[in-house]
Simulated assay, not measured.
Amino acid sequence: MIVLHARPSPGFRAAVDRIFGAGVVVHVDEAAPLDEVAPEMTALLHVLTPVTREVIAAAPKLKLIQKLGVGVNTIALDAAREHGVAVCNMPGTNSQAVAEMALSLMLAVLRRTPFFDRRTRAGEGWTADPSELDSVGEIGGRTVGLVGFGHSAGRLAPALAALGARVAYTARTSRDVPYEYWPQEKLSAESDILSLHIPLTDETRGRIDPLAMKRGAVLVNTARGELVDEAKLVQALSEGHLRGAGLDVFAQEPLPAESPLLSLPNVVLAPHIAWLTPETLVRSLTVAHENCRRLFGAEPLLHQVV
């Protein structure tokens, strides 16, 4: 049994049936437990709901956890190893979508799109205090720092350069690319816009200190919320140390109703959908289908993490 644990849109469901075959994949809503299907589950298509040690132990026939995406921090990898369950991800399938979302968040913060959208809808778009326009800006002429230089950052960098930005990056090692390689401290201290493109690991958790960023900078996070010290982020935004932030991910998801981020006017928010486009889903499901075929054919799997 192949199980998709998610809350798929009608288009997502149609793509699953088109690629895997109608009725081949069992859909379980992301908010529902996997208890009923666990005993017969052989492959799990995983999106965001954590795959815990308990889930893996309750699925004796499980042979593959296929992440529809890149980050595997929501999977109990040690338990998968102990139970002989392969874990695979799919680097590169969502890179275009994530790069475009990062760019859109940069633009939305700099141009204050939500603020002017609300005023325009209320018939007040032409009556804002003229000083409000003093706080908009352009990407051109700014330094954009990319934390990590994987697939999504590699697609984003040339677009930023084409818009006139100075692009710098940090990574484990320098790359043969036409952008400046800086250490993390310099990148945070000197970037006008800092965009995150690294996985969440024990090493990277809490790596970004917003109060160590350049005053007046913008933080964009389409990677993982726990990369950032969120309490310091709220402080930096509230006190004006940061110009603004564009956030698609958070330390706790869904974002709690009492989160102070919800009331900050200089923040643009999205519900962890940077990766989620119909185009990404087709690419992802194609890889997942191939890995399921390989699993049942006893062939080497693509992008195996465990």
Results as ranks from 00 to 15, higher is better:
residue 295 L to E: 06
residue 109 V to S: 01
residue 154 G to V: 03
residue 199 P to M: 01
residue 248 D to M: 05
residue 252 Q to N: 07
residue 166 R to A: 11
residue 33 P to F: 11
residue 178 P to K: 06
residue 302 L to T: 10
residue 120 T to I: 09
residue 175 R to N: 00
residue 172 R to Y: 04
residue 6 A to K: 11
residue 293 R to M: 02
residue 25 V to R: 07
residue 184 Q to L: 15
residue 274 A to H: 05
residue 220 V to H: 01
residue 145 G to M: 05
residue 106 M to P: 01
residue 186 K to M: 03
residue 215 R to I: 01
residue 89 N to D: 04
residue 249 V to N: 05
residue 158 P to T: 09
residue 151 H to N: 15
residue 109 V to L: 08
residue 225 G to R: 02
residue 261 L to W: 07
residue 27 H to L: 14
residue 169 Y to N: 07
residue 34 L to I: 15
residue 13 R to M: 13
residue 137 G to A: 11
residue 241 H to R: 08
residue 244 G to N: 02
residue 291 N to A: 10
residue 95 S to P: 03
residue 229 D to C: 01
residue 57 A to L: 12
residue 96 Q to F: 11
residue 147 V to R: 04
residue 52 T to D: 09
residue 129 D to K: 14
residue 62 L to N: 08
residue 265 P to K: 01
residue 218 V to W: 00
residue 61 K to D: 06
residue 12 F to A: 11
residue 79 A to S: 13
residue 196 L to K: 07
residue 76 A to R: 01
residue 238 S to D: 10
residue 269 L to D: 03
residue 116 F to T: 03
residue 136 V to H: 08
residue 25 V to Y: 10
residue 189 A to P: 00
residue 302 L to D: 10
residue 41 M to E: 09
residue 194 L to R: 00
residue 48 L to I: 14
residue 243 R to I: 00
residue 36 E to R: 15
residue 152 S to G: 04
residue 39 P to F: 13
residue 262 L to G: 02
residue 102 A to W: 06
residue 229 D to N: 14
residue 161 A to P: 00
residue 17 D to G: 13
residue 181 Y to Q: 02
residue 182 W to S: 03
residue 151 H to S: 15
residue 48 L to G: 06
residue 139 I to K: 04
residue 46 H to S: 15
residue 157 A to L: 10
residue 304 Q to L: 11
residue 179 Y to G: 05
residue 63 K to N: 06
residue 191 S to G: 02
residue 239 E to W: 03
residue 179 Y to P: 09
residue 237 L to A: 00
residue 208 I to A: 00
residue 31 A to F: 14
residue 45 L to C: 12
residue 210 P to G: 00
residue 265 P to H: 02
residue 170 T to V: 13
residue 184 Q to D: 08
residue 283 R to M: 09
residue 228 V to T: 04
residue 89 N to K: 10
residue 176 D to P: 06
residue 202 D to H: 03
residue 8 P to V: 02
residue 210 P to E: 01
residue 171 A to E: 12
residue 244 G to C: 01
residue 66 Q to G: 08
residue 50 P to Y: 14
residue 261 L to E: 04
residue 275 W to S: 13
residue 113 T to H: 12
residue 74 T to C: 11
residue 120 T to G: 06
residue 140 G to C: 05
residue 266 N to C: 00
residue 94 N to S: 13
residue 100 E to I: 05
residue 10 P to R: 02
residue 268 V to T: 07
residue 235 Q to C: 12
residue 132 E to Q: 15
residue 280 T to N: 09
residue 92 G to Y: 12
residue 189 A to S: 10
residue 112 R to L: 05
residue 40 E to L: 12
residue 266 N to I: 00
residue 52 T to Y: 06
residue 46 H to T: 11
residue 304 Q to H: 05
residue 67 K to P: 02
residue 224 R to A: 03
residue 302 L to I: 14
residue 19 I to G: 11
residue 122 A to C: 10
residue 277 T to E: 09
residue 299 E to V: 08
residue 26 V to I: 15
residue 233 L to Y: 03
residue 225 G to Q: 00
residue 186 K to Q: 14
residue 211 L to S: 05
residue 51 V to W: 05
residue 299 E to W: 08
residue 245 A to S: 05
residue 121 R to P: 13
residue 189 A to G: 01
residue 6 A to L: 06
residue 260 P to N: 02
residue 65 I to H: 08
